Simulated assay, not measured.
Amino acid sequence: MSVNSKLDRIDRKILEILQSNAKITNAQLSKEIGLSPAPTLERVKKLENSGIIKSYHATLDTDKIGLGVSTFVLVSLKGHNKDNIEKFVEAIHTINEVVECHHITGTGDFILKIITEDISKYQQLMLEKVSDIPVVDSMQSMVILSTFKDRKVLPVPE
């Protein structure tokens, strides 16, 4: 089930519903998709076992838990080679405040999403951890002032 052509209308509906509400009961899910509970559960298990559904998470309100500063950081490495990329990625995995790390094309090599308590914690993180990674050449920070769309539900192609 690795190719989306194997996803039928019901599978796509299950994925849409579970992305919006992962806590839905199997009974309620079965009502919403129009199948009985047993085949519904079988379809969900198949989607999980195939790796299409990777995991389930709770989405937290960053302000309510004291994480007030979110930034994107464009990072360029000293050399764009396999060894430097591996060293950078290994180092980034040790920094909990880096919540996303994407290898990109364009001006930089990576874009990071970093979330911290406040601007002083952000500055400390950048000075003591991110800029301290030996293969980092330059960084450009972009503080997120407002977020107008943060969609967690992916569009599932037909």
Score class of each variant (00 low, 15 high):
residue 2 S to I: 08
residue 2 S to F: 09
residue 2 S to K: 10
residue 6 K to S: 10
residue 10 I to W: 00
residue 11 D to L: 04
residue 13 K to G: 02
residue 13 K to E: 14
residue 17 I to K: 01
residue 20 S to H: 06
residue 22 A to F: 07
residue 23 K to L: 15
residue 28 Q to T: 12
residue 30 S to N: 02
residue 32 E to F: 01
residue 34 G to P: 08
residue 35 L to M: 09
residue 36 S to D: 00
residue 37 P to K: 10
residue 38 A to W: 04
residue 38 A to I: 06
residue 41 L to S: 15
residue 45 K to G: 00
residue 48 E to K: 05
residue 52 I to Y: 08
residue 55 S to T: 10
residue 56 Y to W: 09
residue 58 A to N: 01
residue 68 G to K: 12
residue 70 S to A: 13
residue 71 T to N: 06
residue 72 F to L: 14
residue 75 V to N: 07
residue 76 S to W: 05
residue 76 S to T: 12
residue 79 G to L: 06
residue 80 H to M: 14
residue 83 D to S: 15
residue 84 N to P: 00
residue 88 F to M: 11
residue 90 E to M: 01
residue 92 I to C: 08
residue 96 N to W: 04
residue 105 T to E: 01
residue 105 T to F: 10
residue 106 G to P: 11
residue 109 D to M: 03
residue 111 I to F: 06
residue 115 I to G: 00
residue 116 T to A: 11
residue 118 D to P: 02
residue 120 S to C: 06
residue 124 Q to P: 01
residue 125 L to F: 11
residue 134 P to I: 01
residue 137 D to K: 15
residue 138 S to V: 04
residue 140 Q to N: 11
residue 144 I to N: 09
residue 145 L to M: 12
residue 145 L to R: 07
residue 147 T to N: 14
residue 147 T to C: 10
residue 151 R to C: 13
residue 156 V to D: 03
